[in-house]
């Protein structure tokens, strides 16, 4: 290849490298801005020109998890000196930490929303991947009448617009008391991810040679044993990739969470925007909440990089 490379070809390559560099900078700039804002002091978050170099601090994260109120009068020097370091950071920002009657520090809404997101995403992922895997095995290994139609039906449930499904689900949940519960959201996310998990897992299981199970059957395994001891270990990578995809989808979901939850079971995606209400929002706190929320997805994306294409095309394109 290098032998036939002409001068113009080499010049073109240089142009491509510059172009890719520019694209990468533009695509990563908003993410960089989120991360950098989450370490800024409040007064540097909205400056003109934008502040790029600054001394990073963690006060946005402290403020993120604590319930605060406006400081009416400056704390006395003794009070300030007696306060722990994180309380002093809040004082420095012109606010004070809210305590209950016993003097216990009150948390903001963020930690509980984050935990809710974790509960709902993890449980719904386990359910969707578990059911999806066995269903995919069923479709992959056995004759099913009208198989293509069933698979199309399964996929089509994924394509429904969330708001369309949410209207009747809201009414039904209200009738049985599932609105604003973890269970209600878990069911919705499981249903949403189930179709995806069947399609993706079917592709992975199709790739496992049938001879493996056959050998196990000949060796005296039952079909169930062959499935658990031969097929599942072989499909481990596929299961992990599918699980990560399902987790990310449930973790990021907004519309259902907005409609179905208010407080108790509210997840982070509807909570974080609700913090930008009236007045001047503290963007450093929003950025720190956003950063913590995006971190797991960023890590997963990196781990998942070789399976992204497959997942995004519902298993149609393998590479």
């Amino acid at each position: 290849m290098a032998a036939v490379q002409t001068t113009s070809e080499r010049a073109l390559n240089k142009v491509a490298i510059v172009g890719v560099l520019i694209a990468t900078i533009i695509f990563l700039a908003p993410i960089y801005w989120i991360v950098s804002t989450s370490f800024k002091p409040r007064n540097l978050a909205t400056t003109i020109p934008p502040t790029v170099l600054f001394e990073p601090e963690i006060s946005p994260f402290v403020k993120l998890v604590l319930r605060r109120s406006q400081l009416r009068e400056q704390p006395s020097p003794e009070e300030y000196a007696a306060a722990p370091w994180w309380e002093r950071l809040v004082f420095d920002g012109g606010e004070k930490v809210v305590r209950d009657g016993q003097g216990n520090v009150q948390l903001s809404g963020y930690p509980s929303r984050f935990v809710n997101s974790l509960i709902v995403a993890i449980v719904s992922t386990v359910l969707a991947v578990g059911m999806g895997t066995i269903t995919a095995y069923g479709f992959s290994r056995f004759k099913v009448k009208g198989e293509q139609d069933w698979l199309f039906f399964i996929l089509s449930t994924r394509m429904l617009p969330p708001v369309v499904v949410a209207i009747p689900m809201f009414l039904m949940y209200r009738a049985v008391g599932l609105n604003d519960t973890h269970l209600g959201l878990i069911i919705l996310y499981t249903a949403f991810n189930l179709s995806f998990s069947v399609w993706l897992m079917k592709g992975f299981i199709d790739e496992i040679p049938r001879e493996y199970e056959e050998a196990a059957l000949v060796d005296g395994y039952t079909r169930m044993e062959a499935f658990f001891k031969v097929v599942l270990p072989e499909a481990a990578t596929g299961i992990a990739a599918t699980a990560v995809f399902c987790f990310i989808t449930a973790w990021n979901e907004y519309a259902f969470a907005l409609i179905m939850t208010r407080r108790t079971a509210q997840t982070a995606p509807p909570f974080i925007p609700s913090q930008v209400g009236s007045g001047l929002p503290d963007w450093t706190v929003i950025a720190s909440g956003t950063f913590l929320f995006l971190l797991p997805v960023a890590i997963f994306t990196f781990l998942l990089r070789n399976h992204l294409l497959r997942g995004m095309s519902f298993g149609a394109i393998r590479k």
């Binding site: 695509f27 801005w33 989120i34 990021n252 925007p273 995004m312």
Partner: peptide, 16 residues
Amino acid sequence: LLLLPMMLSMAVVGLF
């Protein structure tokens, strides 16, 4: 790195 934006939450990043 270029693929990162599509994996993030539309609602949360959109807000930013």
